[in-house]
Structures are given as structure tokens and as C-alpha cells.
């Protein structure tokens, strides 16, 4: 079957979302995965974006932003940041969120803020590379009952320790999150461009549970910056079905995910 790695990643992410849930999506791949789920198997999800634009479905292709006119043409409600990220997300009310990561570590801590020449230096210095900051991902990480991390599987992204924790995962592992009384439960899964990682229920270290049909355990281990543990039940992910691909492509009308990478 003909599909791209990014399409597999979006479909695997969409499969994590259950019908009826309240779900928040970010811009880009996250939004495509979310609206794919809505069209494919979760018609009753209560979806929102942090833009405070509710009940909308994108027209004319992937929105340029979560406020842009492509997502503002058929909304039923426009509100604001405190409503979307505060009342609905940081409050602990939202079931699931999807966030991206420039770097992610074995405990699911996410960096989208910057890269530093010497990240261990206790003095704060200007970043070597400035990224975007957390946006609303920090609220999703602190508030959603669970959250999904999406990241391209590369050694430079899957690191032992992130340069900066923009959005907290399980921090130093185990029950380290408990100390902060976050309403949210933490990351439930990392969907990569090669496979799927889930946390060990006790140590909270992410381990490999699935690899995509075009990948392998070896390829994934080679592209991970820490000594990745492999689940004894590791298995191949089911390929996208023709119906899933049709539904994804109906959302991704401009073919953002069809570019081979």
C-alpha cells in the first residue's frame, strides 16, 4: 500500500483518540491527526484548539495557524486563551492533547524552547538556537488527563536529557510528577516517525512497544539517543487501512503529509 511515514504517524496518533473525548490539537501535524480521528472513528469528540475556536472543521487545506481563516470559517464559538487553555485544559477537564517536540527524553519531557551550547550550565545564557517556546503545550502537559507526543525519530531529538523542559513529562521518572500536583496524568505515548513508545507503569521510562511496517527494532534503537528498552511484546503496527487513508487525505487536502521524507 502506498502511504508516507508522516501519514502512518498521523494515523497512529489518531487511533489513540476515542470517540466522545474532549481533545485539544495544536497546529500542523497534530491538527491533521486530530481531525482525521474525528472523521474516521470519533465523530463525537469534543475538539478544540488553544485558539479558542470551537466546533470548526478546516477548509482549503492545513490551517496556517489555529486562529487563521481556514479554521475560522465555520466555527460555532470564538472565545479566548484563558477559556481554551485555562477553563478547559489547565483545569484538568480535557481528556487528551497532542503536542510536538523538538527534543524528547526517556521520561517524556518535551523541549520546544531552544538549544543551548552548554545546557548543563546553571547560568542562563542566550540559546544557540531559539525555538518557539511552549505556547499552550505546557498547559496540555500539566492539565490534560493524558497527552500524546509526536516527534520525528532522530538521535538528535530523542535525547538522554532535554536542554530545557518546556512541557513536563514524568520529570525524573517514577512518581516525580506527584510533587507538583498537576491535574493531568502525563504523557501516555510517544508516536514517532518510526514506531510507538509507551511508559513503563512504575519507572515511567518510555519503552518501544511497536514499530511501523517500514521500520524495525534495530532502526529505532539506532535512532534513539538513550539506551532504549524494548518491550517483550513488541509488535508491528497495523498498516493504515484504505478507509483510514481516505479519511486522512480528506483532511489533508493540500497533501502536507504526502511529501516523501
Amino acid at each position: 500500500m502506498d502511504y508516507t511515514r508522516q501519514e502512518m504517524m498521523a494515523i497512529a496518533t489518531g487511533r489513540e483518540i476515542k470517540d466522545g473525548e474532549m481533545a485539544i490539537f495544536g497546529v500542523g501535524l497534530s491538527m491533521l491527526a486530530g481531525y482525521f480521528a474525528k472523521r474516521n472513528h470519533a465523530p463525537n469528540i469534543r475538539d478544540l484548539t488553544e485558539g479558542g475556536v470551537y466546533g470548526a472543521f478546516p477548509v482549503g487545506g492545513l490551517p496556517w495557524g489555529i486562529e487563521c481563516n481556514r479554521i475560522s470559517s465555520n466555527a460555532v464559538s470564538f472565545t479566548n486563551a484563558i477559556d481554551a487553555l485555562g477553563f478547559l485544559v489547565a483545569s484538568g477537564r480535557c481528556d487528551v492533547g497532542i503536542i510536538g517536540a523538538a527534543q524528547v527524553d526517556k521520561y517524556g519531557n518535551v523541549n520546544t524552547t531552544g538549544l543551548w551550547a552548554d545546557p548543563a550550565n546553571s547560568r542562563y545564557l542566550p540559546p544557540k538556537v531559539r525555538l518557539n517556546g511552549s505556547g499552550g503545550a505546557n498547559e496540555i502537559a500539566c492539565g490534560c488527563k493524558r497527552f500524546i507526543i509526536m516527534a520525528t525519530h532522530e538521535k538528535r531529538r530523542f535525547v538522554e536529557k532535554v536542554d530545557y523542559i518546556s512541557s513536563p513529562g514524568y520529570l525524573t521518572g517514577g512518581n516525580a510528577r506527584d510533587r507538583y500536583n498537576f491535574p493531568g496524568g502525563g504523557p501516555s505515548v510517544i508516536i514517532t516517525s518510526l514506531g510507538i513508545l509507551r511508559p513503563d507503569p512504575v519507572t515511567r521510562e518510555f519503552i518501544l512497544t511497536e514499530y511501523f511496517p517500514f521500520s524495525s527494532v534495530e532502526e529505532i534503537k539506532e535512532n534513539t539517543g538513550w539506551n532504549l528498552k524494548v518491550s517483550p511484546e513488541v509488535r508491528v503496527t497495523a498498516e493504515p487501512t484504505p478507509e483510514e487513508l481516505e479519511n486522512l487525505r480528506a483532511v489533508d487536502v493540500t497533501g502536507a503529509l504526502r511529501k516523501k521524507s
Binding site: 487553555l85 489547565a90 519531557n109 524552547t113 542562563y124 542566550p126 511552549s134 505546557n138 498547559e139 502537559a141 500539566c142 492539565g143 530545557y164 523542559i165 518546556s166 512541557s167 513536563p168 520529570l171 510528577r177 510533587r179 507538583y180 500536583n181 498537576f182 491535574p183
Partner: peptide
């Protein structure tokens, strides 16, 4: 606040 808390948004200050 319960967000920007328990992460480097709290621990690191430019």
C-alpha cells in the same frame, strides 16, 4: 498557577 510550574519555565529565568 499549576502550569509554567514544575518545568524549566519555572526553574530557568533569562
Amino acid at each position: 498557577t499549576i502550569s509554567s510550574y514544575g518545568s524549566d519555565q519555572q526553574w530557568r529565568s533569562a
